[in-house]
């Protein structure tokens, strides 16, 4: 009798440990389980990665991936009713909100770099871009060297700002920098002739042009001035949770599903951005499609 009781207790304890095993070892999965909610941090104007759609809800390429991530979490935790709470973030708030546990993932257009990895972790690279210049057609600006003696606007604290300043230092270029708060203001500075060029990730430049009043007036020129791989940002030191996302991405990339999601948003995409997949990104998909 006692033996039986003991056995069943052990059995129950064993079964109890099996099911939430994923959750037990993962800090983030544990808190999602407890809350019954995934807090999805998202950008609001990173077209077409994460932006506010016509119905007021965030949509985009990164949002699609994040929603699949949540589905995966639902499956693993066997909790199909996990809700999603959207938390808008900016480039200034994303790191603090992730560090203090407010958001469980950040979906937008965040560059994955080694410095940032000291505070956060990233899923597999889902987009590859780099710094380019946008200028008015007929301005004669092709490369960054043509800007010597002219003015450029740069978003404060971006990897693009870093890249331009580094090139200026290396080549001894004299370019007047007009720091701006965000993309819309940088674009406004270019539109109103306050500056001769605006530099940011080329995909964002195409997005800004497609949304401007006079798309024909502007051009994106020059070589890539930096290498900016984007990734979904997740809390650090939680490899179980991070792996879950990477399994999802590997599956998507292997099955070709990823290419379909890409085409949905970029080729030509709901905002008319019209960017067929680049060779670099296609190779990145292939390399990251790890086998089971």
């Amino acid at each position: 009798m006692l033996k039986k009781l003991l056995l069943s207790t052990v059995a129950i304890a064993f079964v109890a440990t099996i099911q939430p095993a994923e959750a037990a070892e993962s800090r983030v999965l544990k808190r999602i389980k407890e809350r019954g909610v995934v807090n999805m941090g998202h950008r609001e104007s990173s077209v077409p990665f994460a932006y506010i759609g016509k119905d007021g809800k965030p949509i985009g390429y990164s949002m699609d991936i994040c929603n699949m991530y949540v589905d995966k979490i639902r499956k693993v935790l066997k909790m199909p009713n996990i809700k999603v709470k959207h938390v808008p973030v900016t480039s200034q708030t994303r790191i603090a909100l992730m560090a203090n546990g407010t958001i469980d993932m950040e979906c937008g257009s965040t560059t994955n770099n080694l410095t940032r990895q000291k505070q956060v972790a990233y899923l597999a690279v889902t987009f590859i871009t780099g710094t380019k210049l946008a200028s008015k057609k007929g301005s004669g600006i092709k490369e960054v060297e043509d800007l010597n003696g002219k003015a450029i606007s740069l978003s404060q604290g971006t990897t693009n700002e870093k890249a331009i300043k580094r090139i200026m230092r290396e080549k001894g270029l004299k370019i007047k920098i007009v720091p701006v708060k965000d993309h819309p203001q940088g674009w406004l500075a270019l539109e109103t002739d306050r500056v001769d060029a605006y530099a940011t990730d080329d995909v964002l430049l195409y997005g800004l042009i497609s949304k401007s009043k006079n798309p024909d007036q502007f051009q994106v020129t020059g070589r890539f001035l930096s290498y900016d791989p984007y990734g979904i940002m997740v809390p650090q030191d939680d490899s179980k949770y991070q792996r879950l996302g990477n399994v999802l991405l590997a599956d998507l990339m292997r099955s070709g599903e990823m290419q379909k999601i890409y085409d949905k948003w970029f080729n030509p995409g709901p905002t008319g951005i019209n960017m067929p997949i680049s060779d670099t990104l296609r190779v990145a998909y292939e390399i990251q499609a790890l086998p089971h």
């Binding site: 200034q92 790191i95 560090a99 410095t115 940032r116 000291k118 404060q156 604290g157 971006t158 870093k162």
Partner: peptide
Amino acid sequence: RQIDEYSYQT
């Protein structure tokens, strides 16, 4: 903010 963006040491 710039230091925050560069270093992520908010």
